[in-house]
Write a protein that binds this DNA or RNA. Structure first.
Length: 332
DNA sequence: AATATTTGCAACCGCGGAAGA
DNA sequence: CTCTTCCGCGGTTGCAAATAT
């Protein structure tokens, strides 16, 4: 069983950085003959390397269609969203970013995006709010320097947790909305509700930046065309999204003064750290059942019912493993 | 200016799955 | 069905460049 090590026992094979001569040999050979069998290629191309090393050099560096340079904000957004759904499936993520290699995306994640999420108070592995003590200490410290009025009056930890919960909900909304837009019309870029929004929550002097660029999102979404038949249950789900977005926009204006005194106090109780879509989840019942119950009983129509009920709808919609699987399937 | 530390990224390693003998 | 080979993936390492002390 098992498999023999690549490059077998040929310890005289060269390792380490490639020279320009080697690169040239590899490119010339592949341009003329294609790569064929990677194992056989080095000999045929006159390279003292193992096939694996050649493949890596080609796919990660020499391929002509590789895009170099900085990642755009849009690319960052795509990576974060896809990572929330797919986890560390770098090759899958790379298929959504033309010209970028899985290795490059993986490196970019590890060196930049991970840190970004951490700064936002999110665990980069789970995309859930961080709950480790160090982070809470930092957060508490930050909050003590931010003017949040009477939020901090009684128990700072409680406020910190509430803020985290708000940020996570916001991120969740953004994730689902982006996913939906990708599914319905890949040519239309999602509205600008990116993770900077949550960064603002923790990095800004003003708590009213919580809503950030969220305003107008529901209007933008309503402007889109979609085919209700293309996705089972989509219209109901869209209503949930729209109503929540509209409510959120309303909330955002109220938040200006004081989050906790706005009347939309988000209760934190056991197990109530909101969950973002996790990387792996088992399958389950169909999403249609989920959406039906959500849309008929919980989602307010034009006149909004209490915001709590909308959040409950969101929780039902987003926390269920089934919906994760559903969106995952669509993406893949 | 010299040294230490951190960062970014190319390349390597080992594993698992697919395919073929 | 078992075993072998190859490929591709994800995690990790090593090193040069950048930055801090």
């Amino acid at each position: 069983m098992g498999r023999s090590p690549c490059c077998d026992d040929q310890s005289d094979l060269k390792k380490g950085p490639w020279t320009t001569e080697e690169d040239q040999k590899l490119v010339d050979y592949i341009n003329r003959h294609g790569h064929g069998s990677w194992r056989a290629l080095p000999k045929l191309a006159g390279l003292n390397r193992c096939g694996k090393s050649c493949r890596l050099r080609w796919t990660n560096y020499l391929r002509p269609d590789i895009k170099r340079g900085k990642f755009s904000e849009e690319e960052e957004r795509v990576i974060i969203n896809l990572h929330a759904v797919l986890g560390n499936k770098w090759s899958k993520i790379a298929t959504h970013l033309p010209g970028r290699t899985d290795n490059e995306i993986k490196n970019y994640w590890n060196t930049h995006l991970r840190k970004k999420l951490l700064q936002m108070g999110l665990d980069p592995n789970t995309h859930k709010p961080r709950t480790d003590l160090n982070h809470l200490l930092n957060l508490s410290q930050l909050l003590s320097t931010v003017n949040v009025g009477n939020m901090m009056s009684s128990f700072p930890w409680d406020s910190a947790l509430r803020l985290q919960a708000s940020a996570a909900r916001l991120a969740k909304m953004q994730l689902l909305q982006n996913l939906y837009m990708q599914v319905t019309n890949p040519s239309i870029s999602a509205p600008d509700i990116d993770m900077k929004t949550s960064t603002s929550l923790f990095g800004s002097q003003n708590i009213n930046l919580v809503g950030g660029n969220f305003n107008g999102a529901s209007t933008m979404l309503r402007g889109q065309e979609w085919n209700p038949d293309s996705i089972p249950g989509a219209p109901n789900e869209l209503n949930t999204i729209f109503n929540s977005l509209e409510w959120f926009e309303g909330l955002n204006s109220n938040i200006d003064n004081n989050v906790m005194s706005s009347g939309y106090d988000l209760q934190i109780s056991k197990n109530q750290f909101p969950e973002l879509v996790s990387a792996s989840s088992p399958g389950g019942s169909t999403i249609n059942n989920q959406i039906e119950s959500t849309s008929t009983s919980d989602v307010p129509a034009a006149g909004h019912s209490s915001p709590t009920s909308i959040f409950e709808a969101w929780e039902k919609l987003m926390d269920d493993d089934t919906s994760e699987t559903y969106w995952k399937d669509i993406l893949q």
